[in-house]
Simulated scan of single mutants.
Amino acid sequence: MSCPHVGGAAALLKAIHPTWSSAAIRSALMTSADPFQFGGGHFRPSKAADPGLVYDASYQDYLLFLCASGVEDLDKSFKCPKKSHSPRDLNYPSLAIPSLNSTTTVSRRLTNVGVPKSVYFASAKPPLGFSVEISPPILSFKHVGSKRTFTITVKSQSDMMGNIPRDQYVFGSYSWNDGIHNVRSPIAVKLT
Rank of each mutant, 00 (worst) to 15 (best):
K155A: 09
F65W: 12
V132Q: 01
S32P: 06
Q157H: 00
R108W: 11
V71A: 12
R88N: 13
G7C: 04
S22P: 14
Y59I: 13
S32D: 03
S175H: 06
Y174D: 00
N91A: 14
C67T: 00
P127C: 11
K117G: 01
P45D: 03
H42W: 14
A28P: 06
C3P: 06
R148C: 09
S175I: 01
I16C: 01
T104K: 06
D56K: 06
A10E: 07
Y55S: 15
P98N: 04
A28K: 09
D50I: 05
S84L: 09
P4Y: 08
F78R: 00
L100S: 04
F130P: 00
P137Q: 09
P186R: 08
Q37H: 05
V113F: 05
S46K: 14
F150G: 03
I97N: 02
S58W: 11
K14M: 15
F43I: 11
A49M: 14
P127G: 10
S158L: 06
N163A: 13
A68Q: 13
D73K: 14
A28M: 13
A23D: 07
T105K: 15
I16G: 07
F141L: 10
P98Y: 09
D159L: 04
K83N: 01
S156A: 15
G7T: 10
Y120R: 00
G39A: 07
G114E: 08
G179W: 02
V183M: 03
A28T: 10
P136D: 10
F171C: 05
L191E: 13
G41T: 10
Q168Y: 11
A96K: 12
L139M: 05
G70C: 04
W20N: 10
Y174M: 02
M161Q: 13
A68H: 09
S21G: 11
D159N: 10
K125I: 07
P137D: 14
A122W: 09
S58L: 08
P45H: 03
A9N: 06
A23G: 08
S27R: 09
S131H: 00
T192L: 06
E133G: 00
Y92K: 07
L53G: 12
S135E: 09
L100A: 09
S84F: 02
R148A: 15
V189Y: 10
